[in-house]
């Protein structure tokens, strides 16, 4: 479930409001968006993937609430980690990830 929207990182682009498939966020004029309907979050991590400022953190617990603070997320390098793993991070290209997959597959065989 979405746990953190970092006000210090947020650039108020409202991308998360636009892309959330279950409409969890509300846009707030002149402010950062608000997590308005947390219980509707389906824990798909796509807001994290789309956030250009790595300001969101979705915990992997789908029903339970887990408390996080920003320092801890920074220390564990969890802000933007999913975006990076998709190859969507700054200076990355998803094609690099695919090249890596192809190379590894040639090396250890195709799992499927």
């Amino acid at each position: 479930m979405i746990e953190v929207l970092s006000l210090s990182r947020c650039i108020q682009c409202d991308k998360c409001v636009k892309v959330c498939p279950t409409n969890v966020f509300d846009a707030m004029p002149g402010e950062s968006p608000k997590i308005a309907r947390r219980e509707d979050c389906q824990t798909c991590f796509l807001c994290e993937a789309y956030c250009p400022a790595d300001a969101l953190f979705v915990d992997a617990h789908a029903e339970a609430r887990v408390q996080w603070n920003e320092e801890e997320l920074v220390a564990k390098d969890l802000f933007g980690a999913y975006r990076k793993n998709l190859g969507w991070g700054k200076g990355q290209s998803p094609i690099d990830n695919l090249k890596k997959i192809h190379a590894l597959r040639e090396l250890v065989g195709s799992p499927f």
Binding site: V58, D59, A60, H61, N85, N97, I101, L104, V108, P111
Partner: peptide, 20 residues
């Protein structure tokens, strides 16, 4: 290398573990 391949192929599978 097998583990790395599995990670690269399905990042969301591992997101569920990395985050916790």
């Amino acid at each position: 290398e097998q583990r790395e391949l599995l990670r690269a192929m399905q990042p969301n599978f591992f997101a569920a573990f990395d985050k916790v």
